[in-house]
């Protein structure tokens, strides 16, 4: 085992540690991605699996057949375009709402004495410990016509007729914001709790009123937390299927439902794969921008 030639042949021990995440990414990201990419270039067929092979070897001829019609359909059929736009719109508005609600929560927790901070953070995270599906179903119970909310409002005499919230886009927004709020609060909190209190004192000292000091000092310094929180909410929200399906109405069109329809109703795997690939591309752009910004900030700090 100690022979030098063997040592040269075997990889350095540190590779055994580094390789774990790479193997993971290869098995559970790269390979599935390539499979989906391959299916997206195939043609629908009534067979098992329900698509034609892209690469064929028949009579000593290797043929690569790339079917672009799935992608062309995405461009020509406005239904897909609307679904993408609608998904991004719903995800963006939800992200904004989550930011507007999550920022004050994170800010207040960060201002608390260190001993009670963890308790409040726990309370933010605690709901995530129950099943996601149960929490979404609970919202049906709250929002439906004779649900908790409407009964309470009628009981207090504020409204006479029940508000129609369930199966409208509003219910979908409520559900998305509610489910993803912890992912907004946590990165914001981690950022805000590190802020140096003396910077605010310095701003007051130089004549800035508290609200102005917040907008000039605290807000810009929490930029990294805001970006991280928005990414964590926005990216899964774009592809969200369960919440709009259960809470949203027929006009809450999201790309997740289009995917579902293509896969399970039309059994059109190639079209569904193309939809998924384009969605991935749309999500990659903001991630890349985020990485670029972070890298630039890191470099600025080093020089």
């Amino acid at each position: 085992m100690n022979a030098p030639w063997l040592k040269k042949l075997l990889p350095h021990p540190r590779w055994s540690v580094i390789s774990v995440p790479y193997v993971w990414l290869l098995l559970f990201f790269a390979i599935p991605f390539l499979i989906v990419l391959k299916i997206s270039f195939s043609t629908l067929a009534i067979a098992m699996p329900p698509y034609t092979p892209v690469l064929e070897y028949i009579d000593s001829a290797l043929t690569l057949k790339l079917n672009l019609s799935n992608y062309l359909a995405l461009v020509t059929d406005s239904q897909y375009f609307h679904a993408y736009i609608s998904s991004i719109k719903i995800a963006a508005i939800s992200t904004l709402l989550a930011l507007l609600i999550g920022y004050p929560i994170a800010y207040v927790i960060a201002q608390m004495p260190p001993s009670s901070r963890n308790i409040w953070l726990m309370l933010v995270i605690l709901p995530s410990w129950t099943s996601f599906l149960i929490r979404v179903y609970a919202w049906i119970g709250i929002l439906k016509n004779n649900g908790l909310l409407n009964n309470a409002l009628i009981g207090m005499g504020i409204i006479d007729e029940p508000l129609k919230i369930l199966h409208t886009p509003i219910a979908a927004y409520i559900g998305i914001v509610y489910c993803y709020l912890p992912f907004m609060v946590l990165p914001l909190y981690t950022n805000l709790v590190k802020h140096d209190k003396r910077l605010l004192e310095a701003a007051y000292d130089l004549g800035a009123k508290p609200w102005k000091a917040f907008f000039k000092i605290t807000l810009p310094l929490s930029k990294a937390g805001i970006i991280a929180g928005c990414m964590l909410v926005m990216i899964p929200a774009v592809g969200e299927f369960v919440i709009p399906e259960l809470l949203g109405g027929p006009d809450t069109l999201m790309i997740g439902r289009v995917l579902w329809n293509e896969f399970f109703n039309n059994r059109d795997w190639p079209a569904a794969s193309a939809v998924a690939i384009i969605m991935l591309m749309l999500l990659m752009i903001p991630i890349l921008i985020f990485n670029r910004i972070q890298q630039r900030e890191m470099e600025g700090r080093l020089t």
């Binding site: 007051y204 000292d205 009123k209």
Partner: peptide, 10 residues
């Protein structure tokens, strides 16, 4: 602090 004609070097 923001109305005092006093400035501080922290």
């Amino acid at each position: 602090p923001y109305e005092r004609p006093i400035n501080m070097m922290f």
